[in-house]
Structure formats: structure tokens, C-alpha cells
């Protein structure tokens, strides 16, 4: 069911050439459960590769990380975007047990690291998953639009 839903929602993106051009999205991987795309920052021209992992979609929201466009290794936190609205954290993700980690993360509803962060456990994904704009395409849109407003 998770794979079927993933493929349906990813298919809507892949078949929509206007969407890909208007948003500046270059899809690199679209094989369940991975959806990776390169996005050009409109102001700086910098390109970042976003990797979403949609395992157990949509019982769970996707995990998010950034990849190096050449090596496809995960980008260190210092290479993550920043902004004044606290979406991006270059380190310090904390699981439910409060353990301190150096893991970078995006703090936004719809991203698994947000809903499993010690500070947001009470804000369940169940509150969002049926809302408009929290389907696969909606989450990817939200993340990339926040990226466009960042200081990458």
C-alpha cells in the first residue's frame, strides 16, 4: 500500500513537465522508498540535492537529508541551509529519549525528524497526514519553498 501510494503520487510529479520546469526540480531518484531531486536556489543559484525516504508512507512522514550532488554522500550539517525562522538545524536532532546527537535536521511538520524530535513528540503526524498540502507533492513543495527562502 505504501509503495502503491508512493508511486501514484510520484507519478503525478514525474508526468507534470510544467511543474518540473516552473519549480526548477530535477528528479534524480524516484524508486520506492527514495525520492531525490536537485533544486536550484533562485537567488544564489546554488544547487542542493534533497533526499526524501518515504518508507511506510503515509503511515509515517518522510525522512529528509541533503546529498552531495557528485558523490551522493550525505552532506554535513555545515552545508545545510540556514534561515531566521528556525526551519534548518545544522546539528542537534534529539530523539524521544533526549539523547544528544550531531544530526542535522529540518524542523517542519511533515518531516519525520520533526515529529520524532523530543520537543515535538506531542505534535503527531496524524494531525497532518489527511490535510491538504501534506501529500507527497505537498511536502516536497513545502520543503523546497522553505529552501528558496533560506540563506544557502
Amino acid at each position: 500500500m505504501s509503495k502503491q501510494l508512493f508511486e501514484e503520487e510520484v507519478g503525478k510529479i514525474l508526468r507534470n513537465a510544467d511543474l518540473l520546469v516552473e519549480r526548477g526540480w530535477l528528479v534524480l531518484v524516484a524508486i520506492y522508498p527514495e525520492f531525490a531531486l536537485a533544486v536550484k536556489h533562485r537567488k544564489t543559484g546554488r544547487i542542493r540535492v534533497f533526499r526524501f525516504i518515504f518508507d511506510d508512507w503515509n503511515d509515517l512522514p518522510p525522512k529528509l537529508s541533503f546529498l552531495d550532488g557528485e558523490t551522493l554522500l550525505e552532506l554535513p550539517g555545515a552545508m545545510w541551509p540556514t534561515n531566521a525562522l528556525s526551519h534548518w538545524h545544522q546539528s542537534g536532532w534529539q530523539p524521544a529519549n533526549g539523547a544528544s546527537t550531531g544530526q542535522p535536521f529540518m524542523c517542519m511538520a511533515g518531516i519525520r525528524e520533526y515529529h520524532t524530535h523530543q520537543s515535538h513528540i506531542s505534535d503527531s503526524w496524524e494531525n497532518y497526514k489527511k490535510q491538504s498540502g501534506f501529500d507527497l507533492g505537498g511536502i516536497v513543495s513545502r520543503v523546497t519553498e522553505v529552501f528558496q527562502k533560506s540563506d544557502v
Partner: peptide, 9 residues
Amino acid sequence: APSEPGGGE
């Protein structure tokens, strides 16, 4: 597209 108002302090 949906907007995203702010992050998590």
C-alpha cells in the same frame, strides 16, 4: 503551492 509559515523554535 502550500506555504510554510515558520520553523520550530
